[in-house]
């Protein structure tokens, strides 16, 4: 029992930090620009594929550096020639623009890299079990993932709150005209923020690509879970996103390790619903089976009772 609890905690933290890694760019763009970027998962996918392509030519490590730069540049272009023109039509138009962009990017990736999964490998340097907890191995690559994730959190947090750049960026969101009058190039700030957000997504892609499956469906399969992280954490709150990621990671991992159902819970009552009724379906479903939908339940409850999220300070 202790073994399962310990291992589940560790797995939950690892998964939670992976979620944070994926969501950090999304929350950055959202907090700074107010744009809910539906194409975020597409940038994540693009990062994985570009990283894979570079890894084939020059190895994993150059990919880790170059892919985020390339994807970040692509993100800046998207902002400059796409999003900026849509901005005047409001947030809904911006959101819909990224919605369409996700379609296009998925198809483009399919044209270039095909529809089948590609063989993206964990670098040999990190391809060994780092430690063994009870009898379960933990690969070094997962610890590397954890380290990068934390580094990104610390780096972003420090940059936004402790540096002049961060203050200007934050002010540009709330008072764009004032910041512009002070002589800062506001459009350039927005462009850079979007580029950094896309680049962060690409880092997540490069790192998650070898650990998961690098395929053109990876964006769609990631689904809306990242929105759950960002919204539950509180729109625009980086710390909130970290807490929410860990919460969701642990919630799902512990739910999966439980086989309990209502039937088990109330076994003493002797109640047993008729087979082939809705009641029976509900009675028999185990916690593990509903684990992956728990985040969405959390999302709905959170928004109903605390719409600012865990640590956010505004609703939208």
């Amino acid at each position: 029992m202790l073994e399962l609890v310990l291992i589940s905690t560790l797995n939950g933290v690892l998964y939670g930090l992976l979620l944070f890694l994926m969501a950090s760019g999304l929350t950055l763009i959202f907090s700074m620009m107010g744009v809910l970027n539906f194409a975020h998962a597409s940038f994540y996918m693009l990062g994985a594929f570009v990283g894979y392509q570079i890894s084939k030519w020059a190895g994993f490590w150059p990919g880790l550096i170059l892919a985020p730069l390339i994807v970040g540049a692509a993100g800046m272009l998207v902002e400059r020639f796409g999003l900026r023109n849509v901005h005047k039509n409001g947030h809904v138009a911006e959101l819909l623009f990224t919605f369409g962009l996700a379609f296009v990017m998925e198809e483009l990736v399919q044209i270039v890299w095909g529809k089948a999964p590609v063989d993206y490998r964990v670098p040999a340097l990190l391809d060994f079990p780092a430690f063994t907890l009870f009898t379960t191995n933990y690969p070094a690559y997962k610890l590397f993932m954890l380290a990068i994730s934390l580094a990104i959190f610390v780096g972003l947090f420090a940059m936004l709150t402790r540096t002049r750049i961060g203050l200007i960026v934050q002010a540009a969101l709330t008072h764009p005209n004032m910041v512009a009058h002070l002589g800062h190039n506001v459009p350039l700030i927005f462009m850079s923020v979007f580029g950094v957000g896309a680049g962060l997504a690409a880092i997540a892609g490069v790192i998650a690509g070898p650990a998961l499956v690098t395929q053109s469906t990876m964006a769609a399969l990631l689904g809306p879970i990242l929105f759950v992280v960002v919204v539950v954490g509180g729109l625009g709150s980086l710390s909130g996103a970290l807490v929410a990621s860990l919460l969701i990671g642990l919630l799902q991992t512990f739910a999966i390790s439980s086989n309990a159902s209502m039937a088990d819970l109330f076994a003493f009552s002797g109640f047993s619903p008729q087979p082939n009724t809705i009641m029976n379906d509900l009675w028999r479903v185990s916690v593990a089976q509903i684990a992956p939908i728990l985040p969405y339940l959390l999302l709905v409850l959170m928004l109903m009772f605390r719409p600012t999220g865990l640590m956010g300070n505004r609703e939208s």
Binding site: E3, L4, I7, S8, N11, G12, L14, Y15, L18, T135, T136, L212, L221, L222, G223, Q252, T253, I256, S257, A288, Q289, P292, I293
Partner: peptide
């Protein structure tokens, strides 16, 4: 005897932990 949701799981480690246990 495990059932997991179709094409929704990104992290199978918890399932593996159960198999191992």
């Amino acid at each position: 005897d495990e059932l997991h949701p179709l094409l929704k799981v990104t992290d199978f480690s918890p399932y593996i932990a159960k198999i191992k246990a």
